[in-house]
Amino acid sequence: MARIPASYLTNRMITLVLTVLIAATLIWIIPRLSGLDPASAALGRMAAGGGSVANADQILAQLRETFGLDQPLLVQYLLYIKNTLTLDFGLSTASFPTPVSAMIANALPWTIGLMLISLVVTFIIGNLLGALMVWEHTPRLWKAAIPVAMVFTSVPPILSGLLLMYVFSTQLRWFPLSGPYGLNVEPGWTIDFAGSVLYHGFLPALSIVVVTFGFWALGMRGLMITVQGEDYTTLAKAKGLRPRYILYRYMIRNAILPQITAFALKIGMLVAGQVLVERIFAYPGMGKLLYDAILTQDYPVIQGVSFVIILMTALAVFLVDLIYPFIDPRIRHGG
């Protein structure tokens, strides 16, 4: 196994670290600029809950100390960065005193599961369809049908989610309207539970797949057109290789490489879209958590969820970048 060039590796590392730092800083700075005082906000919530609060001044001072607001800004910032990097986002204010990290730990598996499935499925379907759009041996019916299917892909996932939900859940009643699994199954490692999870996850995943495969298909189409004109494709044809063999081993094999870089860049957008899909399907992932936090003005949760999603995206991009030199040897040779 060949080594990755050190300059490439450091470059990627710097990008990863900077992304995480900048995201964390943005999340910290934005609310501070707004002049919102978390201590008085928390006190206000207490007052709203209890009608009135005795010894408000002392409680306020106490809250300031707990939130670390009595310290200089720089110390606050460094403390925040330290806590954030150790994934400690403090306590949720709406469901006090649950730690934010525990709430995120509960939601994360759902989000990652849904995301991985929909990502892999769209990547495969999208690239295959894109390749078939260019390949000269594609059946006529397919060639006509694929551009029509593209119409869906310009729509954001939330809209496709709404439509699929309306057709399959409220009208046909083939799929459940919301939730991650049925009410009558016990969570655990059982076949019933797994089936229920798949059944409930089908529509959310489908609504992401339907609208994202076109991105890959269009990119693949452009790349395939370039590959089609290359000399090695012509040579492979002249040698009399089977068209299907040429398609998979010569054309797709070469055209797919830039798509993998695009994969890394697209993850961020996909995650944001998925947040909305989870929200309409009441899927208990990060999106739902974020949405509930917005409703209850639960600032630590909003911060935590945003940061974890950005961290996930940055890590995914980094991983793709690490794997890439092994897929495309040209990178290793400084190409």
């Binding site: 990008t15 992304t19 900048i22 934005i30 609310p31 600029l33 860049l265 974020l290 911060q303 969820v305």
Partner: peptide, 20 residues
């Protein structure tokens, strides 16, 4: 631009909006 392209705008905007 490499750094900023991985940050989903929606999330930062959510943070912004929750504060303002």
């Amino acid at each position: 631009s490499d750094v900023m392209i991985t940050i989903p705008p929606l999330l930062i905007l959510v943070v912004f909006q929750a504060a303002y």
